[in-house]
Amino acid sequence: MKLDKYLDRSLWVFHLNTGSCNGCDIEIVALLTPRYDVERFGIKLVGSPKHADVLLVTGPVNRKMLPRLKLVYEQTPDPKAVIVVGTCGSSGGVFYDSYNIVGPVDKHIPVDVYVPGCPIRPEAIINGVLKAWLKLERLRGFSGVEIEKKIEEVNA
């Protein structure tokens, strides 16, 4: 699958809360504000999954949000990347043994990038989005070697 040429480099992000404690969610909002200002990288938070390239999912997925999680995933147009933000979405975290938690997220939808931390720092989310961007680049037809080189450049 080739990425559409209109989806070149700016990533539009949709944020979905599946029952988190809010900690990671406010850090996502903090990303947009002057200190971190991710809009300078072309990353923008959008109000509808239909406009998004990347899904940022927080929270351990409770029963009531599960159908919505699946719905939002289906509504996001391909090609897309899914980032789980926070420990509780990646593994259940502190909420691992509740009757109402059916997560973690990757049990229900495919996940590309995990950003662990409880809560994560905004810098870590930027790094996660960067990883998702590399995945989309791969879909775009870059060969493995080129991507390796890019990753090295990024990490350097």
Partner: peptide, 29 residues
């Protein structure tokens, strides 16, 4: 009810010091 996680239920299976960290994660703000 969309954000219900059953925090009090989980608390009853943990010891007091563990619950502090759970109580903290009732809400990040």
């Amino acid at each position: 009810g969309d954000n219900h996680r059953g925090i009090e239920f989980m608390g009853r299976n943990r010891n007091i010091v563990q619950i502090i960290y759970l109580a903290e994660r009732i809400c990040g703000i």
